[in-house]
Structure formats: C-alpha cells, structure tokens
Amino acid sequence: MTRSATRDVIMTLVVSAILIAVMPMLVGTYTLTVLVIYGMLGLSLGLIWGFGGILCFGQAAFFGLGAYIYAISAINIGESTLPMILAVALTAGFALLLGAMMFYGRLTDVYLGVITLVVTLILFKFINTTAGPQYKIGDARLGGFNGIPGFQTLNVPGDPGAYIWGDALFYVCAVALVIVFLLVTWLLRSSFGRIAVGIRENETRMALMGYDVAARKTVLFAIGAGIAGLAGAFFANWAEIVTPTLFSLGQSAEIIIWCIVGGLGTRLGPIVGAAGLAYLKFMLGQQSMIDNTLIMGLVLVIFVLFLPRGLVPAIGSLWQASVGRTARRRPARRMRRARHG
C-alpha cells in the first residue's frame, strides 16, 4: 500500500512537471490557466460525485461563491492572501450548512439534485438584482449583472504591489491543481476516503455497520465545495472581474458533462474532461460555421452511447488490453485499479 502510494505521488509529480513545462509551448498560458482552473472545478465534482455518490447540480454555485468572496474581500482587504483563504473556507462553510440540512434531512438522489440546482438559481437571481448602490459589503459594491471589476488580484503574499499574473499565474494555478490532486489522492487512500466509497456503494449497510452516513457525506460535500471555491477564486484572478454568469445553470451542467466525458470514479477523468471540453469550446468559439453548444451536445451523446464509463477508464482498459496478457491472471485487482483511476 505505502509503496504504491509513493509510486503514485512520484508518477503524479513527474507527469505534471512535464505537462507544466511542455503545454505552454503548445497553447497560450492565458488559455491554459483557465483550463487548469476548470480542471480543478471538475475534480471538485468528480470527488463528491465519483467517490461519494453525491450528484450535485450546483457545483457552479460554489465556484461562483468562491469568486465573489474573493473579489469582495480583496476589495476590502487590499491584499490577496487572506481573501484566497476566505474564498475556500467560507465556501466550504456554506456547503457544510447546506449539506447538513440536506443529509440530516435524509434527502437523496433527485431531491438533492433539485435543491442544489435551486440554490444555484437563487444565487444567480439574487446577485443579478444587486445593481443598486445600497448593495455593498464594506467597500465592495455587488454590481448586479455588471459584476465586480477592479479588485486586487493575486499578489506575492505580504507584498500587495507584486502582482502574480500572466505566465506566473498559470504556474501558480497549475501547482495548486497538482497539490489539490495529491490531497484528493491522499484523502481517497485514507480511511475517510475508503469509507466514503463504501457509503457511495451502500448507505444502509454502512449505517448498519455503525457509520454516521449523514455526517460523513456532509464533510465530503464541504471538501468538494472548498475545492470549487478555490477554483472560483483563481478564476476571479484570471478574469479580473466576477459576474453572475458564474452561477449560471449552463455552467453547472457543463461541470457534470466534464465528469461524464472524462470518466466518473477516477481522479484524472474530471480534470481531463474539463480541460479537454473547455479547450474544444474555446476552439469552436473561433469559428462561426456551427453553433458550439450543438457540438458539445453531440460529444456528450456520443460518449454516453459509446464510452459510458468515460475517456480515462476507456483508455485505461485499452492500455491494459494491449499490454495486459501477463496481468490477466489477476482480473479482480486490475478492475479495482481501473475504477480508482
């Protein structure tokens, strides 16, 4: 276990170091930064949905909250370190309350989807109505549908004059994604993560074994929201403006599609799905021949029909099928690894 864990960490570090070095030569860092941020957002839903069985239709709500909390506190504080922390902590705190309400209320499946969807809608509608000058938190005007521009963006901790932007912002975001990825890996290998997967598989059984299912789902939900909040804060720094469209239902739906296409129940799948589809959307946005939502819909349909487990598991099985004569003797182990990505 520990040896495979070490190998996992080293593999992750090597692969991500290569990617961070090579990718900027192929794609502009400005685009890459947002792909990395979307990857983090995809990972946040991939964690709670793929490993906790919690299908949240409102992951965009946490993304938007993280961005808004960053923007508002950055205006008031004038330095970026504390706002980054607040964006993660307050978003996770909000999710903790929302999750406790849902999970202790024994809401499951479709009702959970409806509530998270409605919360996203409420935030979207509410922020849109805050155009008037009376809506302000400290020095920050919420700005309604115009959003909040002109806040302090990411700086070197302790030095508000030393901005981190452009290439540097890309490297910060990429390293943050690697760290989050490693933390998620560690979480899933820990007892907490293994128990979460048990709960995904059979809530009743886990309760009958003495696990407080509601408490554990609430905590996992909050961790996922915290990661989405961090992604939101980075997004605010990248875009240098936050607008209510962050909370839109389209954004929420897109995150779900990233997870399905990339491969649910893997750590890498949602990241690959997010970055890949976001890049596709970016490319499609440069032409006017065909509407890009049409293409996105087509991609989803094709994946659901032909690769229902998603891209990463499909590539995994393909690789094992070509390499795997020797591995065939232990089919159970092989399947397990494929599932855990």
Partner: peptide, 19 residues
C-alpha cells in the same frame, strides 16, 4: 446488503474499521 463494487476484503475491512 453489501458494497457491490468493492472487494470482499475491502467490505470486511470497512466493517472492522468502525471499531
């Protein structure tokens, strides 16, 4: 009532881990 996608060992380990 068991965890279908998990191995026999993981199922039993989860039960033991509670205590």
């Amino acid at each position: 009532n068991v965890m279908d996608a998990l191995s026999v060992h993981e199922n039993i380990w989860l039960a033991a881990r509670r205590f």
